[in-house]
C-alpha cells in the first residue's frame, strides 16, 4: 500500500518538477525544480524497491543501492549547476 501511495507521489513530483524546469526562467529555481524532479524519480524507484520485498527483506536492496548512489550524484550535479550560475552572475555583474 505504502509503495503505491509513494509511487504516485513520485509521479506527481516528476510532473511538478518538470513543469518548474520548463516554465521558470530563474536559474536557481530551475535547479530546485530539477531536484524535485529527481526526488520524484527516486521515489518511483523506491516504490519499485518496496514492491520487490521478499526473502525476509522489507524491500528489494538492488534498487535501494541504486537510489543511494543516485542521490549522491544528483547532489554533485546540483553543486555544479549552482557554481555555474554563481559564476555567470559574477561575470554579468562585471558587465
Amino acid at each position: 500500500m505504502s509503495a503505491t501511495i509513494f509511487g504516485l507521489l513520485g509521479a506527481a513530483l516528476v510532473g511538478i518538477g518538470l513543469f518548474g524546469l520548463l516554465v521558470r526562467r530563474d536559474a536557481l529555481l530551475r535547479i530546485l525544480a530539477f531536484n524535485l524532479l529527481g526526488g520524484g524519480v527516486f521515489l518511483v524507484f523506491g516504490a519499485v524497491a518496496r514492491r520487490g520485498a521478499g526473502a525476509g527483506l522489507p524491500a528489494d536492496p538492488v534498487p535501494q543501492a541504486i537510489i543511494l548512489t543516485g542521490i549522491v550524484v544528483a547532489f554533485a550535479a546540483t553543486t555544479l549547476a549552482v557554481a555555474l550560475v554563481l559564476r555567470l552572475a559574477a561575470a554579468k555583474d562585471r558587465g
Binding site: A12, V14, V48, G52
Partner: peptide, 22 residues
C-alpha cells in the same frame, strides 16, 4: 504524471525482485 501514475499501478504483481538472489 498521470501516465506515470497509471503505469505504476500497472506494474506486474507479484513484483519481479532480486531480493532472493541477493
Amino acid at each position: 504524471a498521470v501516465a506515470l501514475g497509471a503505469v505504476i499501478l500497472a506494474l506486474p504483481d507479484p513484483a519481479p525482485s532480486l531480493a532472493e538472489p541477493v
